[in-house]
Design a protein around this nucleic acid. Structure first.
Length: 463
RNA sequence: GGCGACGUAGCCAAGUGGUAAGGCAGCGGUCUGCAAAAUCGCUAUUCAUCGGUUCGAAUCCGGUCGUCGCCUCCA
């Protein structure tokens, strides 16, 4: 089965076909760096990462662009309120963003273009739209005339008749009631940053940024554009309008949108006190990989209900995988390789792929993988050296997609602890279980967990 | 009002016309000096609900109820 994806453009699951063999151009909507990103943002980023990792797993050469919005109403507002230079704000939160995605084991994009560094491209795009008759000037701003674009509304399934009310508005955050032509270029306002261009002093509209930057790095027509469902309208709809009216070409083949995350069945908001940043969760003692596991284990088109119970469950599910790897690594085995183990691996990987190919069915794919751990656990005693290598290599391939097994540095034990473990071993031989148990308890308090196996004592650090 | 997603065990969740995966939790057993891990058994006659199509429906169609999102910025 080929990779099949739900394409918002046509509202159905379609076979994925790349434009240029073996290559995928991928654009994901990035952060507006005016505040810390929250776990809802990270749900999208983690899903996008899962998707990108899977494309790489399938052998595609992925070119991934993620924009950084470092100029917009919210950023300007914050800058003015705090009396701080806008760059200081965007620098601060950009740094935090990069730190967070590293923590969550999200692969870096190839390029993170900043809006403020692509004013020239945006103005050129506005110019093209004006030349093609889709844009008009009003006051000091330039607007897109949605009446002129026949395809307007095709992504979000909105009818122009329901939108057009005749007034054009140049703010990102305007009042209700009027939805209409959107702004391409905003004339300068008092107290706002501006650029000097052929359209006078001003700054770009929000939507033009993504059209200009995606086309600059991926071409006029590229494979996949992703984002949260809230971006479908108007942001992505407007991107299509801008790009297609400027170039006359189809803009993007596949639009993939990730559902939102809610917290305890409620919309996340600061006023409800259920608004979490990644740092908040880490401060509470949760491990990043458990957070990542939780965020990616629900299908991307389903609303994810974030709860702390769910996070606890994620920890335990991950433990099952980690314990499995732990047992494998501690096995004493004979040389050789068994055909039936290779068969189990091959069969399992095929099923894993079938599930992932089915519109990124992670839950199904994880279920397949848990089946695998079960099958292998039944055969642990008969594994040969090469089998274990093969299994570990398979786990590595799976994790190249899921990215939840980021290993922590395994520092060697201190001499003193080593000594204690030896004392305990001797005590056990002498059947002095009282002493043995007290040492085990003592080390547990230090974060070292001892496990007695038929192959001897083993230790691991507590999570 | 318009557009869209969705409703499967205590919780999370797969399933895309052929008779309910998997994970977590729980109970009982095996293994272990005891633990841990693993393992075995038990835990949904039923998929919001009512009708229809079909030899056969959680899956298709229609109605009803309910949840969420978008329609203004938001991942």
């Amino acid at each position: 089965m080929n990779l099949r994806l739900y394409n918002t453009l046509n509202n159905k699951i379609e076979d994925f076909k790349e434009i240029k063999k073996g290559k995928v151009g991928l654009y994901t909507c990035g952060p507006t760096v005016y505040d810390f990103a929250h776990i809802g943002n990270f749900r999208s980023y983690v899903f996008e990462d899962l998707f990108k990792r899977y494309l790489i797993y399938l052998g595609y050469n992925v070119k991934h662009i993620m924009n950084i919005t470092d100029i917009d109403d919210k950023t300007i507002k914050k800058s003015n309120e705090l009396g701080v230079n806008i760059n200081e704000i965007t620098q601060k939160y950009l740094k935090a963003f990069f730190k967070d995605i590293k923590t969550l084991n999200i692969l870096k994009a190839d390029i993170y273009p900043k809006a403020t560094e692509h004013i020239k491209e945006m103005v050129e795009l506005v110019e093209k739209l004006e030349n093609n008759g889709y844009a008009y000037k009003k006051e000091n701003s330039v607007y897109f005339n949605i009446e002129k674009f026949k395809g307007y509304g095709k992504l979000a399934n909105v009818l122009k008749e329901n939108l057009k009310t005749g007034v054009s508005i140049d703010s990102d955050e305007y009042d209700k009631e009027n939805v209409q032509d959107f702004v391409l270029w905003k004339g300068k306002k008092e107290g706002e940053p501006y650029w000097e261009t052929k359209y006078g002093e001003g700054r770009p509209g929000w939507h033009i940024e993504c059209s200009a930057m995606s086309m600059k790095y991926l071409g006029n027509h590229f494979d996949i554009h992703m984002g949260g469902v809230d971006n479908i309208f108007p942001h992505h709809e407007n991107e299509i309008a801008q790009a297609e009216c400027a170039t006359g070409e189809k803009f993007v083949n596949f639009w993939i949108h990730c559902q939102h995350l809610i917290v305890n069945n409620q919309k996340m908001s600061k006023s409800l006190g259920n608004y979490y940043t990644l740092e908040d969760l880490i401060q509470k003692g949760y491990k990043p990989m458990a957070i990542r596991y939780l965020l990616l284990s629900t299908h991307y088109r389903k609303t994810l209900n974030f709860t702390f119970e769910g996070l606890e469950r994620a920890i335990r599910s991950l433990n099952r995988i980690n314990d499995f790897i732990f047992s494998l690594k501690g096995l004493k085995s004979n040389k050789g390789e068994s055909e039936h183990i290779s068969n189990i691996i091959n069969q399992n990987e095929i099923k894993f792929r079938e599930n992932m190919n089915n519109d990124l069915n992670v839950s199904g794919a994880l279920g397949v993988f848990f089946d695998f751990t079960h099958q292998i656990n039944l055969k642990l005693k008969e594994l040969k050296t090469k089998d274990i290598e093969n299994i570990l290599a398979y786990i590595k391939r799976i994790d190249s997609v899921t990215g939840v097994l980021k290993e922590e540095e395994s520092s060697p034990l201190e001499d003193e602890i080593e000594k204690k473990i030896k004392i305990r071993e001797n005590a056990r031989k002498d059947k002095d279980y009282k002493l043995a148990d007290s040492i085990r308890e003592e080390l547990k308090k230090k974060g070292i967990i001892l496990i007695d196996t038929s192959d001897g004592v083993r230790w691991k650090k507590s999570k």
